[in-house]
Amino acid sequence: MIEAVKFWNEPNNKSHWAFEIDPEWKIYSEMVKTAAQAVKAEKPDVLRVLGGISPIDPHFIKTLERHGALEDLDAIAVHGFPLDWNLWKIHEWPNKVAEIEAVTNLPVWVTEVGISTFGAEEVQEFGLAKTAELLLGRVDRVFWYSLYDLPQAWEATTRHKEAEGSSYYRHFHMGLLREDGSPKLALKQFSDYTPEMGICQWFHFEDHRLDDAVEWLRRLGVKRLRTGLSWADYLRPDADKWFDRMMTKLDEFDLTITFCFTPEAKGVQPHHTSPPQNVEEFSDFCVEMMRRYA
Rank of each mutant, 00 (worst) to 15 (best):
Ile2Trp: 06
Glu10Trp: 03
Glu10Cys: 14
Ser15Arg: 02
Ala18Asp: 15
Phe19Glu: 08
Asp22Tyr: 07
Pro23Cys: 04
Glu24Pro: 00
Ile27His: 04
Glu30Arg: 15
Glu42Gly: 02
Ile53Trp: 06
Glu65Trp: 00
His67Cys: 03
Ala69Gly: 11
Leu73Cys: 10
Ala77Met: 10
Phe81Gly: 11
Phe81Lys: 06
Pro82Met: 10
Ile90Pro: 09
His91Lys: 13
Trp93Asn: 04
Val97His: 10
Glu101His: 10
Glu101Phe: 01
Val103Ser: 09
Val103Gln: 09
Asn105Met: 00
Asn105Ile: 01
Asn105Arg: 12
Glu121Asp: 14
Gln124Ala: 04
Lys130Leu: 14
Lys130Glu: 15
Thr131Gly: 06
Asp140Thr: 11
Ser146Gln: 09
Leu147His: 07
Asp149Cys: 08
Pro151Lys: 04
Trp154Gly: 00
Glu162Tyr: 09
Glu164Val: 01
Glu164Asp: 14
Tyr168His: 15
Phe172Asn: 03
Leu177Asn: 09
Asp180Phe: 02
Leu187Gln: 13
Gln189Thr: 09
Tyr193Leu: 04
Thr194Met: 09
Glu196Cys: 00
Phe205Gln: 08
Glu206Lys: 14
His208Cys: 00
Val214Glu: 09
Arg218Cys: 02
Leu220Lys: 10
Val222Met: 10
Arg226Tyr: 00
Thr227Tyr: 07
Gly228Ile: 01
Gly228Arg: 02
Leu229Ser: 09
Ser230His: 12
Tyr234Met: 13
Arg236Gly: 01
Pro237Trp: 01
Lys249Thr: 02
Asp251Gln: 15
Thr258Met: 08
Cys260Thr: 15
Phe261Lys: 12
Ala265Met: 05
His272Arg: 12
Gln277Tyr: 01
Asp284His: 12
Val287Ser: 11
Met290Pro: 02
Arg291Gly: 08
Tyr293Arg: 07
